[in-house]
Simulated scan of single mutants.
Amino acid sequence: MEKQPHTQKQFMAAFIWIFLLATLVLLAPQAGMAGNSIITTGSGVAALGNDKSRNQTESEALALAKRDAAEKAATHVQSASEVENFALKTDLVKAYAEAVVTVLEKLESDWIKDPQMGDSFHVVIRAEVAPNLKGVRPAGPWADDPAAPLTVSLTSPKKDYRADEQVTLFLKGNKPFFARVVYEDCSGTLTQILPNPYRTENYFQGDTVYQLPAGNDRYTMTVVPPFGTEKITVYAATQPLGEVAQQTRGPVYLLEEKPDAVAARTRGIQLSAAPAGEKKTAAEFFETAITIQTGP
């Protein structure tokens, strides 16, 4: 599907902390995961001592930082989810009892001289803490419950589109959220369709259906060659999303990075950005995608 603005070829997506620590899965840095998660920071300090190498000390500090991030995520979910639905609360406990912690970025890392611990290694990370939903009831019922973790749906009336048909998308969250919607065509080109130069809103109300394109949008999504599988991804969070490299291409933004880089940069959430100067220690995050098939 070729991207040209308004032309013949027009552009066409509680918490039981002891259990959490006991079963925590610590992973190496990677490009992020789809579904529900919490993005937060964590810090750790480990002393060198006489029985550890510098590498071992750095590894210990990183493990402590991951545990700190997991604790903050568990505390956030426990306090933010004032859930009356006992089944939902039980599901959340089960899901976060086997959380996966992914290091998104090392914000600080240095050797320090601690007054009490001596030579020590200090590290601060931005991390994503994702619940293990395997074996837990589907998250579908969460979609309309504002007390549940952030859940956003992205839908289209059909999965198969033919030449000259118009693609329409619908976006809805269970609570207020910030969002970025990215369209990846069959050639791999990434286009940010929301927000865009004419529809600049990036904050959306919960329990409200938003249509794309609509309102101030000046693009359409008309199926034209080349045909194939196309993917639309929505990234959403309860705090402003990280910035990505982009350039204006008519009524939309052309993204200048690969999908993994876009996903990683989007997770660069500034946790200190909050209403009335309130400092946030964690942000709920949600990623989902749909695919459509285009043909002649």
Rank of each mutant, 00 (worst) to 15 (best):
E2A: 03
Q4N: 01
P5M: 05
F11W: 06
M12H: 02
A14T: 04
A14M: 08
F15V: 12
F15I: 11
F19S: 15
L20C: 01
T23V: 05
L26K: 14
A31S: 10
M33I: 12
M33A: 10
I39A: 01
T40D: 00
G42W: 01
G44M: 02
G49I: 03
D51K: 11
S53P: 06
S53T: 11
N55C: 09
Q56N: 14
T57L: 07
A63I: 15
A63D: 13
L64V: 04
K66H: 06
K66Q: 10
D68K: 00
A69G: 05
A69N: 03
E71C: 07
E71P: 02
T75G: 11
Q78P: 12
Q78E: 13
S79Q: 07
S79N: 14
A80E: 12
S81G: 12
E82L: 09
E84G: 10
F86H: 11
A87C: 06
T90W: 02
V93E: 04
A95R: 02
A97S: 10
V101P: 08
T102A: 11
V103H: 03
K113V: 01
D114C: 05
Q116M: 11
M117P: 00
F121D: 02
V123E: 01
V129T: 02
A130Q: 08
L133H: 06
V136E: 04
A139C: 08
A139R: 03
G140H: 15
V152L: 09
T155A: 13
K158C: 08
K159V: 03
K159H: 06
T168I: 04
F170E: 15
F170T: 15
L171I: 12
L171F: 15
K172C: 07
G173F: 04
N174R: 07
K175T: 03
K175E: 03
R180W: 02
Y183S: 07
Y183C: 04
E184F: 07
D185W: 00
S187N: 13
S187T: 12
T189V: 07
L194K: 01
L194D: 01
P195Y: 15
P197W: 06
T200S: 09
N202R: 05
N202C: 06
Y203F: 11
Y203I: 05
G206R: 06
V209K: 12
Y210V: 12
L212A: 05
L212Y: 00
L212M: 09
G215S: 14
N216W: 01
M221F: 15
M221C: 14
V223Q: 02
T233S: 09
T233V: 14
Y235N: 07
Y235W: 10
A236N: 05
A237K: 02
G242Y: 08
Q247D: 06
L254I: 05
E256W: 04
E257A: 10
P259D: 02
D260F: 04
D260G: 06
A264D: 05
T266W: 02
G268P: 00
Q270I: 05
Q270H: 06
L271T: 00
A273G: 04
A274V: 09
G277D: 07
E278I: 11
K279F: 09
K280Q: 08
E284K: 07
E284V: 06
F285L: 01
F285P: 03
I290Q: 09
I290Y: 09
I292M: 01
Q293P: 15
G295C: 11
P296G: 13
